[in-house]
Simulated scan of single mutants.
Amino acid sequence: MTNPRPDAGTTEPVPRGAGAHLLAWAELLRLPALFTVPGDALAGAAAVGGRPGSRTLLAVGSSLCLYEAGMALNDWADRGEDATDRPHRPLPSGRVRPAAALAAAGALTASGLALAARAGRRTLTVALPLAATVWAYDLVLKRTPAGPAAMAAARGLDLLLGAAASGGGVRPALPSAAALAGHTLAVTVVSRGETRGGSPVAPLAALAATGSLTWALTRGTASARTPRDATRVLCGALTAAYAATSARPLLHAALNPSPPLTQRAVGGGIRAMIPLQAALAARSGALTSALLTAALAPAARRFARKVSVT
């Protein structure tokens, strides 16, 4: 659920004056990345044949809370390292107190679990391991070899959260969860080189993963028994948008794995989650959910110009 490591090595000035406190919290919570979250639950509900309803909205609210809990906890856990490498971040710059960030993480986690409980016992059953994965990643697993897998598991569980909220079993949603988890795994591995750069191996592997997912989505669309040709066309367009958003910056990072290009590749991978989620929903025949998810992409791009998504 949390994003890969925040950007490093920047020397942005610390904002002052009116609105500085709100901007600090927006940076801490990485608000532009929040637009990549609702599509998880919508794609999960679509995978089991559910339509967006009150329980789906509760699942979306739970996802948003747990995601932002991970964002706040991420900076709290990294506050010592950020004091040296990223002193402009909200905590080391003093714009947000560490205790406030930790309290926010706890409150958001509790809120996320409460919303999941309102959506039903099945939803809470998925939300509990999701919350545990978020906290384990930020506090323990992030710098270990298990870190990327934990991040991938969190995203997969987030999609299953939407499936569980629909009231049925989550098994039909497992392929969609695996697709989203696979993309997340690739992006997270690439993110490990965004501070100091590295070899082209990780971007190339992520590029291969993008190609595999694109092929799988295209094949699934061609064989899907969708009620209208328009749904197939939409799924194809969304799949193409996913491939373009993810592949282009990855190719640049593979050719030159410098920190700036690697950071752009990570940002592109995060933004590519939106068309990927929309394509998964469209492949399941959920045209409305696909369009709702895809509509989040322009807002994500607009807000990313003001607050970094990574």
Rank of each mutant, 00 (worst) to 15 (best):
P90G: 06
G94P: 08
R95H: 01
R95Q: 13
R97P: 00
R97W: 10
P98A: 01
A99H: 09
A99V: 12
A100E: 13
A103T: 10
A103Q: 10
G106N: 02
G106Q: 02
T109D: 13
A110M: 02
A114L: 13
A114G: 12
L115C: 06
A117W: 15
G120A: 13
R121F: 08
R122Y: 10
R122M: 01
T123W: 05
L124W: 01
L124T: 03
T125D: 14
L128W: 14
P129E: 06
P129A: 10
L130C: 12
A132C: 14
A132W: 03
Y137G: 00
D138R: 08
D138L: 10
L141G: 14
L141R: 07
L141N: 08
R143W: 08
T144Y: 09
T144H: 13
P145V: 07
P145G: 12
G147A: 08
G147E: 06
P148Y: 04
P148L: 07
A149Q: 10
A150N: 05
A150L: 09
A152V: 02
A152C: 01
A152E: 00
R155T: 12
R155D: 02
L157K: 11
D158I: 08
L160V: 01
L161G: 09
G162A: 10
A163I: 07
A164M: 00
A165R: 03
G167C: 02
G167R: 01
G168I: 04
R171F: 09
A173V: 12
A173Y: 07
S176C: 14
A181C: 04
A181D: 00
G182M: 03
L185K: 06
